[in-house]
Design a protein around this nucleic acid. Structure first.
Lengths: 174, 174
DNA sequence: AAGGCCATGTAAGTAGTTACATGATTGA
DNA sequence: TCAATCATGTAACTACTTACATGGCCTT
């Protein structure tokens, strides 16, 4: 169960409302665990019921923003979760299926798709690099910074891998 | 909708029963799109209803194996699908969330988890390499072979990436 | 007062997971 | 004939997706 823990992490970094969380997901934690606002609101409700987070007291009403903060039980839960073990999730990449299918029924249209993916990955790499320059201009200091930078590195290197692979594939099928 | 197309591809490569498909998924297409036997049987039923595949005629009864083959409509559907465009799926990797969480609540237990992942990825890389040696000992010839080999290459290179990244991460957190 | 955006939600559907059920076949 | 295994399924649940609903606030 990753989403609740992603939310706990985000709320510990900064107490937020649902919408704020959604936005921060879109350009941070969401790079490795995307979530829509519907998922986030639902999960906030569950975490509150479970006593792991609480809304900062305010007159509650529909359409009024609710700011959540993490309770001690939530922090404890997250700390435990960090040490849990879980196998890497299997890859699920439809493009690889398309390649396999193309080997059987022909590769019509595949080249364009490869080129499109290449553009997407280049854009994503540029995004990661700009975050890296913004947040870690002079390397990492504290352990927290080192951890965050390692995650970002995984992002840039994964994108670099895809760019290299797609370039080679386009070349080979050219 | 990737699973039905993965199944069409597998059935075109070789007409099979549900259980055979499940086994072949476990050591081939399933590397990039895992599926359990429950998923596969359900999907076989749907594909049959949709007129894309058909069971080779046999007295049907529970517990008796049913061999499926792809109909012309199924081949056409797969050919169309190859040319469709679909963005790369976002990464969803809990280990990255654990890193982010560790930056906030401490990294107790994380090192062991990184080491465990490293072992898993090394084993997977070895698996891919042995398939490569078995299936493409002298490089690739036909377009079909080149496509299949490219997929395998993506696998080996992804695993190599994770091995390098995890090694660096363990070193940096050591 | 009207339109647009902020903010939180509900509802319905699909895909994937986990646990269990049942008939057929085979070997001891 | 009994147990194990082969083979195909059902059922229940969770996670995620897509579409829509509703109230509050701000600006013109």
């Amino acid at each position: 169960m990753s989403l609740p823990h992603a939310i706990l992490t985000a709320l510990l970094e900064k107490p937020s409302s649902g919408l704020e969380l959604t936005r921060r997901f879109d350009k941070s934690i969401g790079y490795f665990w995307p979530a829509t606002h519907q998922q986030i609101y639902r999960e906030l409700g569950r975490l509150e019921s479970a006593g792991l987070i609480a809304a900062v007291p305010q007159p509650p009403s529909r359409g009024r923003r609710k700011e959540y903060e993490v309770l001690a039980a939530g922090t404890a839960e997250l700390r435990d979760w960090v040490g849990e073990s879980q196998d890497p999730r299997p890859i699920r990449e439809p493009l690889m299926l398309r390649m396999r299918a193309a080997a059987v029924v022909g590769s019509r249209g595949l080249r364009e798709e490869l080129a499109r993916h290449l553009a997407v990955h280049r854009a994503q790499l540029a995004e990661y690099r700009s975050i890296e320059e913004r947040d870690f201009p002079d390397g990492a200091g504290s352990e927290a910074e080192r951890l965050q930078r390692l995650v970002l590195r995984a992002g840039t290197e994964l994108e670099s891998f895809w760019i290299a692979w797609l370039t080679g594939a386009i070349d080979e099928l050219g």
